[in-house]
């Protein structure tokens, strides 16, 4: 039984210009200790999905089962008993901390709200958390504005793990940070995962970061999961045309490869989630689109191994191999990028 199990989840918003189908029927399981990456471009619903899991946004349909408890329809009070199991790290290290509260207070707040321990026990826990995330102990009485973005993100991480959650949802948790600081925070997240046995739902638009941290990766496009696979498998053989394009668009850190690799530049812009195209939602930008793709929505089908894909053009052959649309072998960069020289 998965730790977190999401079934047919839908989250729609009414706006003056129509209904936004932000999350439109998503199935996803996260196991204990597993890190699932969720990638996609703006408007694909990845952030909404993260917030719906915490019921910060109320889903319209579907179920969220957390640790064998269906929390989809729990009343506030009952939900509060399960809140501590899933926590969140936010994107913006500036907006996510109350500027008027001290760092000590910010980290202690979740403990106080959930009636955790005595005053002294809480203080001890806060001190322990500060040390865990690598902040100096004199931080307690300071205010967030005295810290840089990276250190603020450490405060946010301490707050998220204060209640000993089982799952932490990292919503673009390192996207706003500078490169050199981002590496520090990614390393901190992996260390905490290994030490505390956390599961992560790691939401990011940055494929290289997801590739580094995730065990399994979901690709979302306009409210739907189009492909889901174990990390190595996905990078070795991206099946869905959108996954291929997304990967090809990621800048590579080698000028020679960057010059040589064949560009698959997607046509057009992202369609608006207000009016998603019918059929396969990607057909308007897909270089391989067939008439069928316009008319019929492809379901997310499991293929051999732990890879599922929602594309009409991906087929399992009689001999067990998989036929999928692709430009050419050289289209996608292979894993032959060497590390930076010492």
């Amino acid at each position: 039984m998965a730790l977190l199990s999401i079934r047919d989840l839908m989250a729609h918003f009414e706006t003056p210009r129509g209904t936004v189908y932000a999350v439109d029927g998503v199935n996803l399981d996260i196991g204990s200790g597993e890190t699932v990456g969720l990638v996609g471009e703006s408007g694909c619903g990845k952030s909404t999905l993260g917030k719906a899991i915490l019921r910060l946004i109320e889903p319209n349909f579907g179920s969220i089962v957390l640790d064998s408890v269906d929390i989809t329809h729990l009343k506030r009070r009952q939900l509060a008993r399960h809140r501590h199991k899933v926590q969140m790290i936010f994107q913006d290290p500036y907006a996510s901390l109350n500027p008027r509260a001290t760092v000590g207070r910010i980290i202690e707040e979740p403990l106080m709200v959930n009636g955790w321990g005595s005053d002294r026990e809480r203080k001890e826990r806060v001190a322990w958390l500060l040390e865990k995330v690598g902040l100096p102990t004199d931080s307690l009485k300071r205010h967030p504005h005295e810290y840089s973005g990276g250190q603020r993100q450490r405060i946010g991480i301490a707050r998220a793990i204060a209640l000993n959650p089982k799952i932490v949802i990292c919503d673009e948790a390192v996207s706003a940070l500078d490169v050199s600081i981002r590496a520090q925070i990614i390393n901190l997240l992996t260390d905490l995962r290994d030490e505390l046995g956390l599961s992560y739902l790691f939401i990011s638009h940055d494929l290289s970061v997801v590739e580094h941290i995730a065990d399994r990766v979901c690709v979302m496009y306009l409210g739907k999961i189009v492909e889901i696979a174990e990390r190595e498998r996905l990078w070795a053989m991206p099946l869905h045309p959108y996954t291929q394009i997304l990967m090809a668009a990621v800048p590579v850190l080698d000028p020679k490869i960057a010059r040589e690799r064949k560009k698959i530049i997607p046509r057009d812009e992202l369609p608006s989630p207000l009016n998603p195209p019918g059929g396969c939602r990607f057909h308007t930008r897909c270089p391989y689109a067939q008439p069928k793709c316009r008319d019929e929505e492809p379901p997310l089908r499991p293929l051999q191994g732990r890879q599922s894909v929602a594309c009409h053009l991906v087929t399992e052959q009689a001999d067990g191999s998989i036929a999928y649309p692709t430009m050419a072998a050289e289209a996608a960069p292979k894993n032959d990028v060497r590390g930076a020289p010492a």
Binding site: M88, A95, E109, V113, R159
Partner: peptide, 26 residues
Amino acid sequence: EREFVLASRAMGMSDLRIIVTQILPN
């Protein structure tokens, strides 16, 4: 709409407490 308010909701804080201790001081 700020994330620290979302964070407060995520930790299970009541509305009154969010209004008084989180938003009002700002």
